[in-house]
């Protein structure tokens, strides 16, 4: 039972409001914990606030309310100043493979940025520091090989890689920083179907082998099911169902989760379309929380 341990990330009642006319309440009171070594899938439709959660955790968005703690320390929003070294233990792989890497730099130096950060954190982190990275030092070539590319690729520019390969490089760079929280913000949604599962599986395998928690954000349930230990289902800025992946999958409790699971096409040739209820009123049902087995 994970609740016996201290969570790496502890989010309580996060509220995010984007200014505008009218202001958009992107996240309405979201709470969750992330524990070391687990893969958590955050799923939901576009615009439900998934990416905003990722931005709150990395400090790119300042929440309007609630608290996010990383190893018990509040996360400071990223401003003009350099990110606090302690918080660089939270890294992210972005959605768009076209812009997640600097097109004007070869990939080797970009991965080296991650390695340098890991070195800096090692030097600064005192003994017993929970965020202190462990493991042998690597070079960009090692990391390219770990994500299934060739060590010789480090002199190539991002433009010469395919979308899936770029997401592998972005994963390598984020993990080279030896984070203990890796967030994948829809990292596979722009990839073709045959690559999606491979990249997702690679991310979870590498993150878990480093002892990091992976928060994998996606609207593609079938891929998330393959890698996630636990699911958080979001709808309209709230978490409507949470629990172990199999429990949610086999026994969805919330009306929205049922629709979401029903929307996965079955490859039986029958060509069934998901049954969508006439309105979303049913989704306002109270959240369903599956207990850990």
């Amino acid at each position: 039972m994970p609740s016996e341990r201290a969570p790496v990330i502890r989010a309580r009642d996060i509220e995010v409001v984007y200014p505008g006319h009218p202001p958009v309440r992107a996240v309405r009171g979201v709470s969750f914990d992330l524990f070391k070594g687990e893969v958590v899938g955050l799923v939901g439709e576009s615009g439900c606030g998934k990416s905003t959660i990722a931005k709150v955790l990395t400090g790119l968005v300042r929440p309007a309310g609630g608290a996010v703690e990383y190893h018990g320390q509040p996360i400071r929003p990223l401003g003009v100043r350099r990110r606090p070294l302690f918080q660089t233990g939270i890294q992210m792989v972005f959605q768009d493979p076209g812009s997640s890497l600097n097109p004007r730099r070869p990939v080797g130096p970009q991965i080296r940025d991650g390695l340098e950060l890991a070195l800096r954190r090692r030097r600064q982190a005192g003994p017993g520091d929970p965020a202190q990275p462990a493991g042998p030092t690597a070079n960009p070539g090692d990391w390219l090989e770990r994500v299934g590319l060739a060590a010789g690729d480090q002199t190539r520019y991002p433009g010469s890689f395919s979308g899936g390969q770029r997401q592998r490089v972005a994963t390598a760079r984020a993990l080279a920083a030896e984070p203990d929280v890796l967030i994948g913000d829809e990292p596979i949604s722009a990839l073709d179907a045959s690559t999606q599962a491979k990249v997702a599986y690679l991310m979870s395998k590498l993150a878990v082998s480093q002892g990091a928690v992976l928060l994998f954000i996606s609207h593609d349930l079938s891929v998330v099911r393959l890698i996630a230990d636990r699911l958080l289902v979001m709808w309209s800025g709230r978490i409507v169902e949470s629990g172990p992946t199999e429990a949610v999958w086999s026994n969805p409790g919330h009306p929205y989760t049922k629709v979401l699971l029903g929307a996965i096409p079955a490859p039986d040739g029958a060509g069934r379309l998901p049954a969508v209820p006439a309105g979303t009123a049913a989704f306002d049902a109270p959240p369903v929380i599956h207990d850990d087995p």
């Binding site: 990395t58 790119l60 990223l78 660089t88 992210m92 959605q95 890497l101 097109p103 004007r104």
Partner: peptide, 26 residues
Amino acid sequence: GNDFVWSGRLLGFSAVRSIRVDILPG
């Protein structure tokens, strides 16, 4: 607003380094 600029900042780039590495060449 590019993701790679944010990635750099997440990797602990200072404003000066971010400008020099990710912005200026463009």
